[in-house]
């Protein structure tokens, strides 16, 4: 089977600044992968390239063997690191919007999760608390049967209870053939759910290995290793 995500000599330049340089990467199916690195290391750039929100300066990025386009967007479910909905829309209208455009969106699943979270579907997004807004976004993203979920800082601004719920949501919704790519700098919180970690440093991959390998080899957690690698 083709890797779900593949980068070949992927480079993205902003002016004279290399946000990513010469990244080679291949993600297997059925894994939960952590994309780790300090701010400005190129995590979001990589994610935006995978979603076709940026055009590579050089090199290629392929989703399921295809350059980002309508065909890859059908199978990628993406959660940006900030709000990306029209705040004037009601939650139920956002669900209708997703159902209209994504064939793999399950309204039933979304309803179940929104009910569990006690979110009022007749409210406008703006009228919800910031935490609730983030939950609505995650629920919609995770209610798709995607091949690749790309979650950019999904646990950034939420409280610990919500964080547990989010991790649980991710764990119970992804299927065995789908891959989840989670970018974060809060490693301790998600270390246990990851198979694999990729460390990004100044736009380059400095480590690409499994969590248990790190623990066996270094005798320390990914978080501890991260602190060591990225020591200021």
């Amino acid at each position: 089977m083709r890797p779900i995500l593949e980068c070949q000599k992927l480079t993205k330049k902003y002016g004279n600044f290399f946000a990513l340089s010469n990244v080679d990467l291949s993600l297997e199916r059925g894994k939960i992968v952590g994309l780790l690195g300090p701010n400005g290391s190129g995590k979001t750039t990589l994610i935006k390239l995978a979603n076709g929100l940026l055009t590579p300066t050089e090199g290629h990025i392929m989703i399921n063997g295809l350059e980002p386009g309508p065909a890859t967007k059908k199978i990628v479910s993406y959660l940006p690191d900030h709000s990306f909905f029209n705040g004037h829309m009601k939650v139920k209208h956002l669900m209708a919007y997703y159902a209209d455009f994504y064939r793999n969106f399950s309204t039933e699943r979304a309803l179940k999760m929104l009910d569990a979270l006690e979110i009022d579907k007749d409210k406008r997004l703006n009228a919800l608390s910031k935490g609730a807004q983030e939950k609505v976004q995650l629920v919609l993203v995770m209610s798709r049967d995607a091949d690749l979920y790309i979650l950019d800082e999904p646990i950034g601004g939420v409280d610990p209870a919500a964080r547990d719920y989010i991790l649980r949501t991710i764990l119970s919704n992804y299927s065995e053939n789908s891959t989840v790519l989670i970018s974060t700098h809060l490693i301790t919180d998600i270390e246990q759910v990851l198979d694999h970690v990729i460390f990004l440093q100044n736009g380059q991959i400095s480590l690409n290995t499994s969590v248990d390998e790190i623990r066996t080899e270094y005798g320390k957690s990914v978080d501890a290793l991260f602190r060591e690698v990225f020591k200021c």
Binding site: I32, R168, Q192, L194
Partner: peptide
């Protein structure tokens, strides 16, 4: 079990 333990299903 994985959801209960909050760990990766592969692990």
């Amino acid at each position: 079990l994985a959801v209960d333990a909050a760990v990766n299903p592969n692990t």
